[in-house]
Design a binder for these strands. Structure first.
Lengths: 245, 245
DNA sequence: CCCTTAAGTTGTCGTTGTCAACTTCAACAA
DNA sequence: TTGTTGAAGTTGACAACGACAACTTAAGGG
């Protein structure tokens, strides 16, 4: 298991070997907030769980068990920052996926593949972002996390608007609503496929690219026109001997 | 807040007023497992959270804090039973939605609407079922929950096979794979839409039926053919003043 | 009638989230 | 230069929780 110590710049300075001076330790960390978030992101990736303790983060950062509370109101607030980080990662990957492609359609398709792959590359993080831990019964999501989600959606919208499915669409109000409709379908199917893959309710995850492509084509052409053929060894739903209770 | 006491049959008998005898309490509850699961389902619905404690369940059932451990190995095992209950509810609603409809296409469409609505009617339960709390890093989901999920998927599959999108399809191996492809698209889009609605990333939830219908049509016709028009006041993605950090 | 054993209980331990009160120290005003 | 203030970090405490161990109850079968 990768130890946090490998990021010396994020450790409490007290644990850094100063070659000469033996000043015991500076009282202040200097950049604790960033260190805590980074440790949390690492921990989520390593353990694929968000059930770590704030105290564990403090331990990894080399500070006392209550230091994080100077930067985060509570655990939910901390996880919101981690989630925002996740939205940042997703957005940058989506942006990168779009850059190399020349045709609008290729851009949207590549974005779809990379969206799904980012999800299955770090399932726990993706689930934190969309898993509703941060969406309380009635209260809104934390602001930092909402803003990050907003940016991600903007990327989706831009790609679809840009692609506009190959047709030139003037920006009328009606066409704007059509764009919204396309985003809704596109996002729903990507989100759903990603989570079904993560939950291993469909698979295999190694064929995620092909499955994305299949779903993407099925969505464009319409199931009434042409149903996508899945890869030969793909499976859909739990394959299960109907166990006897 | 609805108190559990309203289900007298599930309370520990000791709290039931025996009209005559004052036998202090029977040592054994009699049906504690069912009582615990029922209390948990209630609690999930009421609080929309799965962060209740086993001890709270024990309190509600009127037994000692450790009694539940005689029926569930740990909290995960308990939540698996709750999740299975949720899959049962979903399956029965899907089955009911199919019964009243006469044409195959209407059956599939009705099932879609009811799938989504079951999700937004009890978001926390839906999230427990699919939220990966039960899908550990490598270990499989608990058997009871996997079997329930299997039944739910079978309903989806039957509806699509039955509908087969209005065409008569012989059951060749190739057509089986096409059915799988259709299920994949169908399930992905339903699952994704449900969760986006739950997370309030699209909305409004009151228009869930119309949105389901839009997405459903977009999926059948294909985005290249016809993009669905959303209801006038529907929104997609976080509507957010791009907050300044 | 005993005895096995599932079901329920009490007691305990380590860990956690969070509050409160105290300490350090960098920056700024006088 | 000195004094003060406030953000950042610390120590200490507390109730609650998950889980384990050891004990008790009582129902059912030989």
């Amino acid at each position: 298991m990768m130890r946090y110590d490998h990021h010396p710049s994020l450790l409490h300075p007290s644990t850094m070997q100063k070659t000469q001076s033996s000043t015991p330790r500076p009282y202040h960390h200097g950049d604790l907030r960033r260190a805590i978030v980074a440790a949390a992101v690492d921990l989520v990736r390593e353990t694929q769980s968000i059930e770590f303790s704030i105290r564990e983060l403090a331990r990894r950062a080399g500070v006392s068990h209550n230091a994080p509370y100077k930067h985060f109101a509570d655990k939910r607030d901390l996880l919101a920052a981690v989630s925002a980080e996740g939205f940042g990662l997703l957005a940058s990957r989506m942006a990168a996926a779009v850059k190399a492609r020349s045709t609008p359609r290729a851009r949207v398709s590549s974005m779809a593949r990379n969206y799904v792959r980012q999800g299955i590359d770090n399932p726990a993080l993706y689930r934190l972002m969309f898993g509703g831990y941060l969406t309380g019964p009635q209260e809104d999501r934390p602001a930092i996390e909402r803003a990050a989600a907003f940016n991600t959606r903007a990327l989706l919208a831009d790609a679809i608007r840009d692609g506009a499915l190959g047709q030139a669409m003037p920006m009328t109000a009606r066409n704007e609503r059509k764009i919204d409709g396309a985003i809704l379908v596109y996002w729903s199917v990507l989100h759903g496929l990603t989570l079904l893959l993560i939950d291993r309710l469909v698979g295999p995850a190694e064929k995620a690219d092909e499955l994305s492509e299949s779903v993407w084509e099925g969505m464009i052409d319409g199931l009434a026109t042409r149903i996508p053929l899945l890869p030969a060894d793909a499976w859909v739903g739990p394959r299960e001997p109907p166990m006897k209770t």
